[in-house]
Design a protein around this nucleic acid. Structure first.
Lengths: 342, 342
DNA sequence: GCCAAAATTGTAAGCGCTTACACTCTTCTT
DNA sequence: AAGAAGAGTGTAAGCGCTTACAATTTTGGC
């Protein structure tokens, strides 16, 4: 039974014996529709398998039924998890998910913000995953009329879900310090204009705070860009090994960077924790296997939570409560790549 | 400069001194538009920063400017890579990417095919990544009027890009056999109705063919479901260790399953290649690190290639050449988890 | 140069939906 | 029991675009 003709609101109106207008209202659960009419419409719509044309709805001023997810990349473990979790929530709520990966290119971000009006034509809301926004961009988005929610962003005028990145980094670093390490390097996600994963700066702060707690200071030479990727971590560690004095411990601000660091060490005949202690953040599925000490964070939960907040806003546009900010717990997991420094 | 009013085709028409109709045609590069008009329109559109409303275009019978990517999951390494590569191609060509992850749920697939008409309302084309389709579903899609392309699917009536899965599996298995192993198990992606990654069956075939080449046969007890995930591979290997006689070598049909297998072995105090040789398919970034022997395949290339084919179809709808099927090369990479069996 | 054919441009009718506004019934007031 | 207020419903005007089809201009052959 392949349907070939579109069922329009007109068909539903005829079948239910009501006007198009009433059908439209009934379908969207607007007030001023009698229960009888409501029932008739629901019945007719079901019989015909009616589904509103999002294009027409949008054009007439309704909603698009789509939500955009904007992420710095879709391939990194964290983002792939969060995207899928959010996509599930959106799909279950009847929204299409439009994926926009910045792919580390500021040009893509510029394009999006240059055409925010266009975007707002195509989606009802935006879920931002760790996107580093300028104040101007935040203002633009807030004024766009789009519903917005985010993961891992701070001081934004919309709902946000995340972990306490500074705390997580502090936990990881404190673990190292508690083990007697005082000569530390940090592999930090890139902070350039081109591609900054937002959490990096908070994690760097947490690192700094932990050092300060132990009356140590951050040595700029020992803050290396890792790009938050395996390859970046590897390069960063190689650099550390080749050009600088080796610290006794390394804090990578995500597990993938830590993996890269471990790779680089292996390439140079070094290993953790023998030569250098290594800790990450994430608790990636491979971390257990590699014995990587890390600070675990719930990832899918963050994506799903934020997605739900966004959907709620969209569905209850009438209840404009304050933007909320939720922190999920992180937990230090000691494994085998960190040990006491004599 | 925050624009607040939408620029419509009307504005462009006025500025260029032409009719809406001519502007529409010029903008879409249709024939029968003089060069002068073309230039005037392009100029006016650029000045105004005009961008067509996809909703209006769609409603009027034009295109939506979106393409759906349908994948069994968005989190597995292969899919995350392919999705991002395709998303880049789509984005650069001016298309939005609608992500649909089946999440291993046949219910999601059913929902999509139950409302294919709805989907075709919202997107111009569909990129399928290793989705296991019934003949009926293939026919439905082919008749939907949507442009379709795929990665890793065989005998479909649309453009496809993939590797020779049977060959890749044959390469991996032959490597094991060549090393003197004859007691082999295979960790195969799930084949259930619920969630089958399509390539698994071809890979299983390749496994079988390699055995046959050596006058061996596949023992059903040694074909274990791995779900093509780390965790699935781990469970599969655990099962193998606990309940069955240990083979001398294991072929996992993707690297992530192989990782899981290695984990399970470690949990039982076993290691590769000492107790069991292990080989995968993919060449995941972690494989080098773990010394995993594998058959490498280009992943982003497949996604980008198929995406380009789809975009070409969409942009040159007039040139309806035959569906093409492209195979990209795979290559055996010997590392440390496989060794000669005495 | 003249006229048909070809090339270019314009007119107008929708696409399927939302929404301001008008209209018809019910309910309450007093 | 008459009129005001409100609930429920319908009318019709778009939203911004595409696309027959009609109107106009250009081209080219003789």
């Amino acid at each position: 039974m392949v349907k070939t003709q579109r069922v329009t609101i007109q068909d539903v109106a005829v079948l239910s014996g009501l006007s198009i207008c009433t059908v439209s209202r009934a379908l969207r659960n607007l007030p001023n529709v009698s229960e009888k009419a409501q029932a008739k419409v629901a019945d007719a719509a079901a019989k015909l398998g009616y589904k509103a044309s999002s294009a027409a709805a949008r054009l007439a001023g309704g909603s698009t039924g789509s939500i955009a997810i904007i992420a710095p990349t879709a391939t990194a473990w964290f983002f792939a998890q969060a995207v899928e979790a959010a996509e599930e929530v959106f799909g279950d709520s009847g929204f299409d998910t439009v994926l926009i990966s910045l792919r580390g290119k500021s040009s893509v971000k510029r394009k999006i913000f240059g055409d925010l009006l266009g975007l707002s034509q195509r989606v009802d809301g935006v879920l931002l995953l760790n996107v580093d926004l300028s104040e101007y961009e935040v203002a633009l988005l807030a004024a766009s009329g789009l519903a917005v929610a985010s993961v891992g962003m701070t001081s934004v005028p919309w709902d946000n879900v995340g972990i306490d990145d500074e705390l997580a980094a502090w936990q990881a670093t404190s673990h190292l310090l508690g083990l007697g390490h005082w000569d530390l390097a940090v592999l930090s996600g890139r902070e350039t204009q081109e591609n900054s994963v937002l959490t990096s700066s908070d994690r760097l702060k947490g690192f700094g705070r932990a050092l300060k707690d132990h009356h140590l200071t951050v040595h700029p030479d020992l803050v290396i860009n890792s790009d938050s990727t395996i390859d970046g971590g590897r390069k960063a560690m190689n650099e550390l090994i080749a050009h600088r004095s080796l610290p006794t411990a390394v804090f990578a601000d995500c597990d993938e960077a830590a993996f890269g660091a471990l790779m680089a060490m292996r390439e140079h005949g070094l290993s953790a924790p023998k030569n250098v202690s290594v800790i990450g953040i994430d608790d990636h599925p491979m971390s257990w296997f590699l014995g990587l000490s890390t600070v675990a964070q719930p990832v899918a939960d963050q994506g799903a939570f934020a997605a739900n907040l966004l959907v709620d806003r969209l569905q209850n546009a009438d209840a404009p409560n304050e933007p909320s900010n939720h922190f999920l717990d992180t937990k230090l997991i000691e494994r085998k790549t960190t040990r006491r420094q004599r």
